[in-house]
Simulated scan of single mutants.
Amino acid sequence: MQLTFASYNIHKGIGLDRRRDPERIINVLNELGADIIALQEADRRLGRRAAVIPRQMLAEHHWQLVPLAARSESMGWHGNAILVRRGVDILDAEPITLPTLEPRGAVCARLRVDGRIMRVVGMHLDLSGLRRRHQIEAICSHMARGAEPSILMGDLNEWSNRKGALRAFGPEWNVLAPGKSFPSRRPLARLDRIVISPEWRCVSQQVHHSALAAIASDHLPVSAALQLPA
């Protein structure tokens, strides 16, 4: 079985032209051709924390929203949301509590695709290196409770290519490096990552750098095509 996973910090839908444009974000998501997408900054930060992309718009473009929102008008939890294409079964979902001083978080969904069960985590980690390491440790501890093939992805805010807080994942995780994704106009840093458990084989990985993605957010999306053995 081969699936494409993607992660995208949509910057609350505000592009480099300073316009909030949910339809533009949807168009970038459609360009990715992904089966499962983790979004960061998917809700507005103030007030009612309303979703950046209307639910009806998601449905019209054949996306299912994993139910994680603590507020009725939100998409996710602390701005973290997970979208899956139609045909993917959502078994359950929950937030992962992280040690933090600012509104950061992670979410976990248990999914079934063609009879195979997997867990997917979306995350947006702290700007502080020490805090990031503690957050990664908390996520890994949460994932140790199950044995399903797993994918962790999101904006890790880690500028180091292989060291720094990334070492907290340990040898049981494979940290992919699709490429430089921030800032979107002229990328310098690999802030957005996909991390996989040993069951997965990475077929390909990339940064999606289309003309539309270059202005839709301050981050570019990253994606990976992954295979599970029969």
Rank of each mutant, 00 (worst) to 15 (best):
H209Y: 08
G154N: 08
D17S: 09
P178W: 00
G15I: 09
V175F: 07
S74G: 13
A211G: 07
S7D: 00
S150D: 03
E94W: 14
A168P: 03
A70P: 11
R162I: 02
I37K: 02
N174D: 05
D218H: 06
H11I: 00
K12M: 07
M153I: 02
V120S: 11
C108F: 08
R167F: 04
P95S: 05
I14E: 12
R145M: 11
A211Q: 13
A42I: 07
R190D: 00
G115K: 02
A81K: 01
A38F: 07
D155H: 10
P67D: 07
L83S: 08
H11E: 04
F5G: 00
E199I: 01
N161I: 07
V203H: 11
F5L: 14
L228H: 14
I215G: 01
A224G: 01
V113G: 01
V121L: 05
A168T: 08
L176G: 00
A165M: 12
H209C: 07
P95I: 05
G164I: 03
M75E: 06
R55S: 12
N80K: 09
M57S: 15
M118I: 15
R185S: 11
A147V: 12
M1S: 13
P67T: 06
I215F: 01
R162K: 12
E158Y: 08
E23R: 14
A224Q: 01
M123I: 13
G87L: 04
G115F: 07
E102Q: 13
K180I: 01
D114W: 01
E60F: 04
A59P: 02
G79C: 10
D89L: 10
L127K: 11
L226C: 06
E41Y: 10
A93S: 15
D43K: 08
L188E: 10
P67E: 05
H142L: 03
V66M: 12
L32F: 04
W63G: 06
G105I: 11
E172G: 13
S128I: 06
A93E: 09
P229G: 06
V203R: 14
R119T: 14
A69I: 02
R185D: 05
G33W: 09
V120I: 15
R44C: 05
T4N: 09
M57I: 10
R49P: 02
G79L: 04
E102I: 10
V207G: 00
L226T: 06
A138M: 12
L39Y: 06
K180Y: 01
L166D: 00
Q56M: 09
C108L: 15
L191D: 01
G79H: 02
G47Q: 06
G76S: 10
A216N: 00
P149S: 03
